[in-house]
Design a protein around this nucleic acid. Sequence first.
DNA 1: CTAGAATCGGAATGACTGTTCCGCTTGGAT
DNA 2: ATCCAAGCGGAACAGTCATTCCGATTCTAG
Lengths: 184, 184
Amino acid sequence: MRADARRNRARVLEAAEVVLARDGLDASMREIATLAGVGVGTIYRQFPTKEALYQAIVTDRQERLAAMAEELAGAADAGAAFFEFFDRIVAHSTVKRILVDALASAGIDAKAGAPDIKGAISALLVRAQEAGAVRADVGMAELLALLSAACLAAQHNNWSDDLRTRALAVMFDGLRRPTSASGA
Amino acid sequence: MRADARRNRARVLEAAEVVLARDGLDASMREIATLAGVGVGTIYRQFPTKEALYQAIVTDRQERLAAMAEELAGAADAGAAFFEFFDRIVAHSTVKRILVDALASAGIDAKAGAPDIKGAISALLVRAQEAGAVRADVGMAELLALLSAACLAAQHNNWSDDLRTRALAVMFDGLRRPTSASGA
DNA sequence: CTAGAATCGGAATGACTGTTCCGCTTGGAT
DNA sequence: ATCCAAGCGGAACAGTCATTCCGATTCTAG
């Protein structure tokens, strides 16, 4: 692979991440190419299709996400680690539209080839539950549902840091204690 | 207004609701026209632009939403009314993509001309708080954030009835009691 | 029943999109 | 310094889409 090709590949990925973060899947290849300072043909040399480019970025994000989860899994305070992971992901998703889709797809259909995010998150959850910081009757399904919900809303409605903190505080309280009052 | 014009207007609205619910804003006018059994020109006679058609449906939904909130506001058990309202909206949003946008826009920027949904929801909240069913330290901002989050996720990830019930149960528990454990 | 205005259908328009193609440029091995 | 394949840019293509327009149709007042 020639030196300039590698350089262009990096530029394209960088530009694509910016544009996709802003416009989501509706981003146009032309705009990505312009921002990257290359022709559209150059993008297609590296990524056969728009979905492939999208997939490449998502995969990259998923790897970083899994790394973060694994890192936090080793923390001393399992409860704090769990809630911090949750908060950090939501905070990031305000800016990164793609992350949301990545998370959603990870939660709904564990895509082939995706790194083991679910495993890492599950470990965080189990440890927090063993430490008594999270109620025992929630599973991965509920957790991913809530996480995805928070990310989607944070991104869609541009949550401020303050609103995010307050909204998550309510969710976190719900995650701490099991039902006691009568349901609705 | 001619009789056939009125009939076509109704058909268009009905078809648009179906198609927009399925495809969101990406729905095409051609498809709506076909389903309604009219030509695209007929749509444009009634609605100057795609956004206007969209707006008409959203407004209609908002009105029904507000009506539901007001109806529940008179219920005997304020707590039950509050949680039922929340659940019903989320349940509907699984099917209706537009409702989500309507809610989001109502929560973020109270659009001019929109019926007083916020007022109705606020009344439900206050009454539930006075009844002791909802913690006193949540406001409309947090409530709308959580509601919008649940709707977005339910729609985006096609929550099953079961998952919705379980995920909302966690949120509801969070809405019931104020923080006691240390935060994250 | 008839005239004529309101309304209709759907082809045409113009502005987008993702993707392909090919003549030109350039890296890097010799 | 020379060469040529790998790589490049961006015009061209084929497909969308929302929106416009006008000849044909249909309603309704008289």
